[in-house]
């Protein structure tokens, strides 16, 4: 449910009494309502659903996830116990 996509706030303005913003998603820009993220600033990332920003992305938390995943990768390498040397299915399906 609830397709929501991360984008960067590139402009904040008022329209019909509502706090709105332009959100940039890798070069595609659309408008979103910022009423539910009153603290957001230009340059921050938000998650947008149905034309509404619903959260301010926590960059620190995101960075920590990646640090943890990389740690996992390194741990695996240290153990030298790559569970699947080649876990993926072969390049082409066989007949």
């Amino acid at each position: 449910m609830c397709l929501a996509v991360p984008g960067k706030v590139v402009a904040i303005f008022e329209e019909n009494g509502l706090r709105m913003g332009h959100i940039d998603y890798a070069g595609t820009v659309n408008r979103a309502c910022l009423e539910y993220v009153p603290e957001i600033e230009v340059g921050q990332y938000t998650v947008v659903h149905a034309g509404f920003a619903i959260s301010v992305i926590d960059e620190q938390e995101a960075a920590q996830s990646f640090a943890a995943w990389r740690e996992l990768t390194e741990a695996v390498h240290r153990n030298g116990t790559d569970l699947f040397g080649n876990p993926l299915p072969p390049e082409e399906p066989t007949e």
Partner: peptide, 13 residues
């Protein structure tokens, strides 16, 4: 896929 096209695709599903 151009990044802007892909992004528009993600936004619109």
């Amino acid at each position: 896929v151009r990044p802007a096209v892909r992004a528009a695709g993600e936004v619109l599903g």
